[in-house]
């Protein structure tokens, strides 16, 4: 019998994205290829400027004009696809809707009957641990709680692939670790195929089955690392030797890229200073 985890839920094949015209062309994503198996948690990690967000927008269908292909089944992604649920880096809850109405929003668009959408929204709110905050408005919640609302709103449509762009970037380290636990628990419970775009090394190792390490501009795949940490997994794993080993190994790959990125920003800043 074929292992279902070996079937790719998504194939990213030779994706290239360039911005600008004529002499001003910048290649943001350069011949990037990898796949994500069903039920797998894959992270894409790289320094700022490696094209992570561009890749996120391409896979989410928000950037339709690119070379290569992102395939889900037989379909090439060139516009938002119902199989992909997106969670954004910036706070994206609707401030005028309370928690349950935020989470039920995608179902409202699909024309699902009110009682059913409330039941389904309630289920996912419960899953992200916000059952007692259903009637609260986002302004009454912390940053971490608001991101959990966004995650529940994405999960409620039961997307085949959960695509997240640094959803915990604005949170403190402890909240980030605890939310990592919550994400791991949900991912295992739903066997949810997940692709996380991040620049956070510990977060990537804590959550992932595989990590795609990107180079600094133009963004290419430098290496794909298998993370063989036991599942079910909790944040306790950060204390293990194996975790430290993976973090050190990936940092070894990233350091050179991050240094190039830093040098680039510093020279850009000095050019701006010289012109200013």
């Amino acid at each position: 019998m074929e292992d279902i985890r070996l079937q790719p839920a998504m194939v990213v094949d030779d994706v290239v994205k360039r911005f600008g015209r004529g002499d001003e062309i910048v290649t943001a994503v350069d011949h990037v290829s990898f796949n994500v198996a069903q039920g797998e948690f894959v992270s894409v990690i790289g320094p700022s400027g490696c094209g992570k967000s561009t890749l996120f927008n391409i896979i989410g269908g928000l950037l339709g004009d690119y070379e290569g292909s992102v395939m889900i089944g037989d379909e090439r992604i060139s516009a938002p696809h119902p199989a992909v649920g997106m969670v954004f880096q910036e706070e994206s809850t609707f401030p005028w809707r309370n928690v349950i109405d935020n989470v039920a929003f995608p179902l409202e668009l699909q024309g699902v009957a009110k009682s059913e959408r409330m039941d389904r929204a309630h289920h996912f709110i419960d899953m992200v641990g916000l059952a007692s905050f259903e009637k609260n408005f986002p302004s009454q919640l912390s940053g971490g709680m608001r991101q959990r609302v966004s995650i529940a709103r994405t999960l409620v449509s039961q997307p085949k692939i959960l695509l997240m762009d640094e959803p915990f970037a604005a949170l403190d380290e402890q909240t980030r670790l605890l939310l990592g636990d919550k994400i791991t628990q949900i991912q295992q419970e739903l066997n949810q195929t997940t692709l996380l775009i991040t620049h956070n090394l510990t977060e990537a190792v804590q959550l992932s089955d595989r990590i795609v390490v990107m180079t600094y501009r133009p963004g290419k795949v430098k290496r794909i690392v298998d993370i063989n940490l036991k599942r079910p997994r909790t944040s306790d794993v950060v204390g293990s030797d194996a975790f430290g080993h993976y973090v050190a190994e990936i940092w070894n790959d990233l350091r050179e890229e991050a240094s190039r990125g830093m040098a680039d920003s510093e020279s850009a800043a000095s050019r701006r200073g010289a012109h200013g």
Binding site: G60, L62, A79, P80, M86, F88, S92, F94, P106, L109
Partner: peptide, 19 residues
């Protein structure tokens, strides 16, 4: 980001405006 949420959910321009 709110507009991108709408786009990711394939909202029509009328839904985008009113919702």
């Amino acid at each position: 980001v709110l507009i991108n949420v709408g786009r990711s959910l394939n909202m029509t321009s009328s839904q985008m405006f009113w919702k």
